[in-house]
Design a protein around this nucleic acid. Sequence first.
DNA 1: CGAGTTTGACCTGCGC
DNA 2: GCGCAGGTCAAACTCG
Length: 283
Amino acid sequence: MMTMGVKKKEDYAIGSSSFHFNYPLLDFSDDKSSLGFMELLGVQEYSPLLDLPLGSNVELLPTSDVKELPQTKKDWSEVTNQQPATPNSSSISSASSEALNDEQKNRTVDQTHDEHKKTKEQLKAKKTNQKRQREPRFAFMTKSEVDHLEDGYRWRKYGQKAVKNSPFPRSYYRCTSVSCNVKKRVERSFSDPSIVVTTYEGQHTHPSPVMGRSNNFCSLMSGSENYMSQYYQQQHQQPLHVDALSSLGFLSPKNVTFPQETALLSDYGRLQDVVPSLMFKQD
DNA sequence: CGAGTTTGACCTGCGC
DNA sequence: GCGCAGGTCAAACTCG
């Protein structure tokens, strides 16, 4: 069905930690004797993962593989140095502009101009007191023919922008669930059009709408930790305490590397099992 | 008719 | 301060 090879060791920068990780190659070719990505993560049960045509490749890639991303220092800080987001932080700018729009509708041009000025000043004053903070972001790359990978959550596209120095546009999606303000950006790498870069922002406040899933956040995380813990113990003859795993999920901490031999998948799972689980807020 | 997409306009932040 | 690029809004449109 799908093969997964531990390709090479790379430096990852996700969340607040950077780490080494042998990223898996997910290949939808038929191989019954293989080990699934979810199996690698220690998850015993999973259902079909990416809703992709057979023959398409899905490859989790280290961010360093795409040279143009992130493009700026700001981008890097967004991906690598997360700050805790304050409640309502994401709605500050939109709420302000909505208020502005309502005012504009009901007033004359001159009045509107004055009001606009006022509102801008108020906004400025607000900004000085309350710096806009972003939700934590999680970026990853996949090798896929389809831009928008099925991850078990429902998304509404709210924007698309041309990206500088790239022929491929960036799409903006929001989780359709009410009171869940998770967003994601999807764009193709211009250096390698087969690579899709997905950036999640925020945490889901609800479980995946896809029903009947046995491998939830807990099983995924505990499973992945088990796998890496077992491997680490084999290699170092001592138990592994995985702080990064417990905070970030399946990601390995620094200095923990995976076996070099190729691991093959016997089945395929869902992207949801990897990413949105990380974003799911456990209260 | 409701949900989702498209797309031009607008807002915001950052670098120079 | 200005210009640029990223990010968001919202009306119009499409689709089931």
